[in-house]
């Protein structure tokens, strides 16, 4: 399931929670871990000068600087690196999302692990030009599952055993289900299939009664059975529920109640530079609030 992990890191505190999960996965599942860091973004037109994303300084990239940064990353993760014997550290320059996608395409990892917002200093204009966060841009385009840890993964004690799959019944959710089901089978997890019925629009619509909502909940349960449970064969340790409310809130609450150590869901946002995208995407809101890792899957994942 996880033989090759790409851990994309800013090598700052912002990625510490992600590092804990990434290295734990590498150790537990005997995976190779690629620690990948984009040290600077290009600047000064065509020149070789980059802005160091950690210090904000303008630096001319050469082998010495590259080696120095590699060594810093090694020291930063020294404690965790000692727990694995199969790792590599790669540093490069470029725009972080683009370089993460580039190396992912070349290395074909089983999963990309990322931290939340880095708050890296970098360059003011670079950040201004980059519409959407690095995560948004990677999650939108990656052909691989992306695991993000934004908050301390309090309910992640090591390994995955209790997985919530939250569906919006989209095509991407079908891909997310295929990945989630493979994962729960291989890792012997409990599997919670969940749908949140969005009732936020009901505030302006008096014709929707509680009966209507109950009908829709029953329909959603039927859909879960039809779309997913029917494909699960004799797999037993599963449960399913549909709650009404604001989708991201319900997903986070449900995961907390089930003490989930992983949420898997679809990533459906297409436009990263739409100002509404960052609040419009359920996945992103879940990532911001969940206290366990979240794997987002777009509709390209699993495509050859």
């Amino acid at each position: 399931m996880f033989k090759k992990i790409l851990f994309a890191t800013s090598a700052t505190e912002a990625c510490d929670h992600a590092a804990r999960v990434a290295f734990d996965m590498a150790r537990r599942y005997h995976a190779h871990i690629d620690v990948f860091h984009v040290l600077g973004v290009p600047t000064r037109g065509y020149s070789q000068v980059v802005v160091d994303l950690t210090t904000g300084d303008e630096v001319t990239l050469d082998d010495n600087y590259r080696d120095l940064v590699k060594e810093e990353i090694r020291s930063y993760y020294d404690h965790q690196i000692q727990t694995t014997d199969d790792f590599a550290i790669t540093v490069t320059i470029g725009h972080p999302h683009r370089e993460i996608l580039r190396i992912a395409r070349a290395e074909k990892p089983d999963i990309i692990v990322m931290g939340g917002s880095t708050g890296a200093s970098g360059s003011y204009a670079h950040k201004k030009a980059a519409t959407g966060s690095t995560f948004q841009r990677v999650a939108k385009a990656a052909h691989f599952p992306v695991l993000v840890i934004n908050r301390p993964a309090a309910s992640f004690w090591g390994g995955f055993s209790n997985v919530v799959f939250a569906t919006d019944f989209s095509d991407a959710a079908d891909h997310a289900f295929a990945f989630a089901f493979k994962l729960v089978k291989e890792l012997n997890c409990e599997f919670h299939l969940f749908h949140a019925l969005d009732i936020t629009c009901f505030q302006t619509d008096n014709f929707h009664t509680q009966d209507t909502i109950d009908d829709q909940i029953r329909n959603a349960i039927a859909q879960i059975r039809f779309r997913y449970v029917s494909k699960m064969g004799d797999f037993k340790p599963y449960a399913m529920e549909v709650w009404e409310g604001i989708p991201f809130v319900e997903i986070v609450k449900y995961a907390r109640e089930k003490q989930a150590d992983l949420i898997i869901m679809a990533y459906n946002t297409r436009q990263t530079d739409d100002p509404e995208a960052s609040i419009g995407s359920v996945a992103e809101q879940v990532i911001l609030r969940a206290n366990c890792p979240v794997i987002s899957i777009n509709r390209s994942v699993g495509k050859e």
Binding site: R44, Y124, A129
Partner: peptide, 26 residues
């Protein structure tokens, strides 16, 4: 124009006048 795009990006970096800049394609 790439050169103009770079220069305008840099002037925002240097002087922070609160602008955005773009090529036509996007």
């Amino acid at each position: 124009c790439h050169n103009c795009w770079d220069a305008i990006r840099d002037l925002e970096e240097e002087y922070r006048i609160g602008i955005r800049w773009s090529f036509l394609k996007p």
